[in-house]
C-alpha cells in the first residue's frame, strides 16, 4: 500500500524586497510504501530540509502535492493542522527539541496531553515504549540531566507515543557521537521492523545504511535511488559510498 506520495513538488523562495528567486525544489516525485524505512541523502543546500518541512506541514509547496494515504495535505484546514501533525506524524529533530521545564515523562506525553488523552491511557502507552527504548529509569529526570543519546531516545519515544502513520526524522544522529548514533539507528531499525514507516533525512552514510531504500537528492530533484534488498550491511554501505561519490563528482563535471 502506498502511504506517502509526492507529485511534482516545487518550492521557490522569493526574497521579501527583491525579485530574486531561489528554487529549493524543482520537481520532486517519489512514493513511500507502508512499512518502509527510507533515507534521503544529499549535500547541504540540496533541498532535503525543505522537502521534509513540506511533508511535515511546517512549510507550503509552491506547486505540486503531497498525498498521505491518498488525501492531499494542502486540503487540511488551518484549524486542523496542529491536530493532524500531532496524531498522524511523529518528529525526531537533530537538536532533540526537548523542553527543559518538563520531565522526561512529560516530554514524551506532551502530544497526548495536547490531544486531551485520558491519564490512564497515557500511562498505559508510556511504559512499553520507554522500556523498549531503555529509558524507563530516567523518566522522572529532566532533559538537562541525561546524555545526548538518551535525549534522542526520549525524542523517539515522544514521536512513537501517538502511534503515527509515519515518523519524520531530521538528521537524528547529527548531534550524537558514533556509539550513540549506532545505538539510535538500531532502535529505529527495530521500530521499523515492528511495522513503523520512517522517513529520515541524513548526511551520514552510516546512519542511512540502516534503511531499506535511499533517495539521493541534488539541486532540488531526486537524482538517484538505491534499494538495500537482501544485501548485508557492509555491502550496502559500500554502495552508498559509491553513490555519494558519483553524486559529488558528477556535480563537479556539470559545473
Amino acid at each position: 500500500m502506498t502511504l506517502l506520495e509526492i507529485k511534482n513538488l516545487k518550492k521557490v523562495y522569493t526574497a521579501r524586497f527583491s525579485n530574486q528567486q531561489t528554487e529549493a525544489l524543482t520537481t520532486v516525485n517519489f512514493s513511500i510504501e507502508a512499512g518502509e524505512f527510507v533515507s534521503i541523502m544529499g549535500e547541504s543546500g540540496s533541498g532535503k530540509t525543505t522537502l521534509l518541512n513540506i511533508i511535515s506541514t511546517l512549510d507550503d509547496a509552491t506547486s505540486g502535492e503531497v498525498f498521505l494515504e491518498g488525501s492531499p495535505l494542502s486540503k487540511i484546514k488551518d484549524k486542523e493542522i496542529s491536530a493532524f501533525r500531532r496524531n498522524t506524524l511523529g518528529f525526531i529533530f537533530q537538536d532533540f527539541n526537548l523542553l527543559d521545564n518538563f520531565t522526561i515523562k512529560d516530554n514524551i506525553l506532551l502530544p497526548l496531553v495536547l490531544s486531551k488523552t485520558p491519564v490512564k491511557e497515557m500511562e498505559e502507552r508510556l511504559m512499553p515504549i520507554v522500556k523498549n527504548l531503555g529509558i524507563e529509569a530516567h523518566i522522572d529526570k529532566f532533559p538537562y540531566e541525561v546524555s545526548g543519546g538518551q535525549k534522542q531516545r526520549v525524542a523517539v519515544a515522544r514521536a512513537l507515543i501517538t502511534q503515527p502513520k509515519i515518523i519524520l526524522a531530521d538528521e537524528p544522529t547529527g548531534a550524537l557521537d558514533s556509539k550513540a548514533s549506532q545505538n539510535l539507528m538500531e532502535i529505529l531499525k527495530g521500530i521499523n521492523e515492528a511495522g513503523q514507516t520512517i522517513l529520515m533525512v541524513t548526511h551520514s552514510a552510516q546512519a542511512a545504511s540502516f534503511s531499506n531504500r535511499i533517495l539521493f537528492i541534488r539541486d532540488g530533484a531526486v537524482y538517484h535511488e538505491i534499494y538495500r534488498g537482501d544485501a548485508p550491511a557492509e555491502q550496502f554501505m559500500d554502495r552508498i559510498s559509491k553513490s555519494l561519490k558519483v553524486l559529488s563528482s558528477r556535480g563537479e563535471q556539470d559545473e
Binding site: L58, K79, L114
Partner: peptide, 9 residues
C-alpha cells in the same frame, strides 16, 4: 518547539 509537535493557537 511545541508548535512543531502539534500545539495549536
Amino acid at each position: 518547539i511545541m508548535q512543531k509537535v502539534g500545539l495549536d493557537r
